[in-house]
Design a protein around this nucleic acid. Structure first.
Length: 587
RNA sequence: GCGCCCGUAGCUCAGCAGGAUAGAGCAUCGGAUUUCUAAUCCGACGGUCGCAGGUUCGAAUCCUGCCGGGCGCGCCA
């Protein structure tokens, strides 16, 4: 359930992507050429050619089918190409090597397809998620602790998945499941009552709360009496003691104020912000329900669910001291979400350390008869070159400091450039560029790889980075301005999209891959696939920009290239926006 | 001990529904600006895809074992 799935790309028009159309076309031919072998048809699919010397798309299925059909791959490829009807998109279909079927798009078709893309607000991306509801659970920081760089992946990746699914037409509910309940509050309240530094609280609320927690927790670890008092405080809070409750509300309010400031800065909003406390009073009912299904046993005083059949460790659903823990809360949360929103899937975005927990609690949910797909999208832990960071070791890097630093570096770069921009404009650009760089650094790599944080990498402003993409976009838009200055009397851009020069064709072919790249990135929960695509498109466009004249080109071609540039700009901007990254007007 | 993940160029990483000579960025070196934004482009250099087996016409990609690293394994979330 936590494994990445094959993309369940919708098949067939209306609203099929180019790869889907070509795949259908190949499969139909296969069924015709090999009646009675329909079961093998789904082995045929079109994919982007590995090398453009072979064409734009290819189908490699003949080699794999040879065994099943007891024919040579070459014969199969030939038999297929013999029955393949002409395809409007293709200039040529060629069998090569051992049995590759190479497909080359026709310039005329690309020209028309680009015009259609230009006319389409969705850039030809099908609404694969229309009528479907999905809930995303991401970010989920802990109250009374600062957001540090360890929170950025869940927040940024989760938000990108959220935006991507919305664009595909899914009804998305984003929910920030705050860590706002549990044992830590007993410790914190006790610390507050004994060590409070009011001046610090006024100056730096979260820093003050964090310090209180650390100090109180240290005392707890060496002083059994203190530990007992902390437990007392927790019991008082959970029993609804007004003083305790008021303190807790203060902690939550102070933290949320800070979190919201950061979310605003990150350009992230949640539909819901239901922390663990929201489900607190539903926990006894969850235990009852587990008991009613005969799932609960007692072990060392705790209530547990055994998962021996699934070869998983047992899961504690109520501690020996009578308190509930996170597993029970998570089950309650699923039950409440299913009842309130009836989503077809609930997706959790957290780091890899929680994999076992999710396997356990997903299994229990299935035992309870929950049908909703539960999926854990996990990513590798972020660490520092010297090792894992932790609040205790005091080596955390706060998220805000990272963002400040990113903006600062972007600002320095702008200052050193010769531009006519005002200081205010420069600061605005630096904000967009710096934030984009930080987000892109996380979104452009495979989520599952472990990330070793370095300032240099997180803040890179060149190469495969957000500023590169933003810059390509800004330049692509800029040509329109120049064109209008140079040709004020032009009759407009209502011209056919010309696909002639190799550099122009490279851009055209890539533009038309946008629907496939976006759909795949979304349905596989892998924003880095979209980032890869955007970088590839931006590179192709930069080459085009550098090598092919626009304003000097003959009339007609000139307008076509402006139009192509604008389409590139729209595509890049749409893609970046779906990653949560904005594009400045100038840079 | 058991489980999950990672190991690809000097560095950081893509690629992994098996496919044609293994890609990019950074770094290094050499070029390009009377012309659309040089935060750019072109070229060079650079790899026994951790090791060893296996499956296959074909393996960086799938399977097994080993080595190295990260993380997890009943009252934290």
């Amino acid at each position: 359930m936590t494994e990445p799935q094959k993309p369940d790309l919708p098949s067939g028009p209306p609203g099929a992507t180019l790869e889907q159309q070509l795949t259908q076309w190949l499969q139909a031919a296969f069924v015709q050429a090999y009646p009675g072998q329909e079961a093998l048809a789904d082995q045929l699919f079109a994919s982007v050619a590995t090398d453009e010397q072979f064409g734009h798309y290819q189908c490699n299925a003949a080699m794999g089918l040879a065994r099943h059909l007891r024919q040579s791959p070459r014969a199969i490829a030939d038999a297929l190409s013999a029955v393949l009807p002409p395809h409007p998109a293709l200039a040529s279909v060629e069998v090569a090597g051992p049995g590759f079927i190479n497909l080359t798009l026709s310039d005329d078709w690309m020209s028309e397809a680009l015009a259609a893309m230009d006319d389409d607000a969705r850039l030809l991306v099908p609404e694969a998620g229309k009528g479907r509801t999905i809930l995303f659970d991401y970010s989920s920081p802990n109250i009374a602790k600062p957001m540090h760089i360890g929170h950025i992946r869940s927040t940024v990746i989760g938000n990108a998945l959220d935006r991507l699914h919305r664009f595909l037409g899914f009804t998305v509910i984003s929910d920030n499941h705050l860590g706002d309940w549990g044992t830590q509050f007993g410790i914190l309240i006790l610390g507050y009552r004994n060590f409070l530094d009011e001046a610090q609280l006024a100056r730096d609320p979260i820093g003050a709360l964090e310090a209180l927690y650390v100090k109180s927790n240290e005392r707890k670890n060496e002083d059994p009496e203190w530990q007992a008092q902390a437990r007392q405080e927790l019991v008082k809070l959970q029993q609804g003691d007004p003083d305790s409750r008021a303190l807790w509300e203060t902690f939550v309010a102070l933290s949320m104020k800070e979190f919201n400031r950061i979310y605003d800065r990150l350009d992230i909003r949640f539909d819901l912000c239901r922390g663990e406390s929201y489900y607190h009073d539903q926990l006894p009912a969850v235990l009852d329900r587990l008991r009613a299904q005969g799932l609960v046993e007692e072990s060392d005083g705790a209530q547990v669910v055994r998962l021996d059949e699934e070869k998983l460790p047992l899961c504690i659903v109520r501690k020996s001291d009578g308190a509930f823990n996170y597993a029970t809360t998570d089950i309650a949360t699923v039950l409440a979400r299913v009842e309130a929103f009836a989503p077809e899937a609930i997706v959790y975005v957290t780091d890899e350390r929680q994999q076992l927990h999710f396997k356990q609690f997903f299994t229990i949910c299935r035992k309870l008869g929950i049908q909703t797909e539960l999926r854990h999208v996990w990513f590798g832990l972020m660490r520092l070159p010297e090792g894992t960071f932790s609040t205790r070791d005091g080596n955390v890097i706060k998220l805000e400091r990272l963002l400040d630093e990113a903006e600062e570096r972007a600002l320095q770069l702008i200052q050193s450039a010769d531009t006519s921009l005002s200081d205010e404009e420069k600061r605005a650009i630096a904000r967009t560029v710096g934030l984009g760089a930080v987000k892109y650094a996380d979104l452009s790599q495979n989520p599952q790889s472990l990330v070793t944080f370095t300032w240099e990498k997180a803040l890179a402003l060149d190469g495969n980075s957000a500023p590169y993409l933003q810059y390509a976009c800004v330049r692509a838009r800029g040509v329109l301005r120049k064109y209008q200055e140079s040709y004020p009397d032009s009759s407009g851009l209502d011209v056919p999209m010309h696909v002639g020069e190799p550099a122009e064709r490279d851009v055209a072919v890539r533009l038309l891959r946008f629907p496939d790249a976006l759909t795949r990135a979304t349905l596989q929960y892998r924003p880095n696939l979209l980032a890869d695509y955007l970088f590839d498109l931006a590179q192709a466009y930069s080459r085009f920009y550098q090598t092919v004249p626009f304003l000097q080109a003959p009339e007609g071609i000139r307008e076509s290239r402006i139009r192509l540039s604008l389409l590139v700009a729209r595509t890049l901007e749409q893609g970046l926006n779906l990653l949560g990254i904005q594009v400045p007007e100038r840079m």
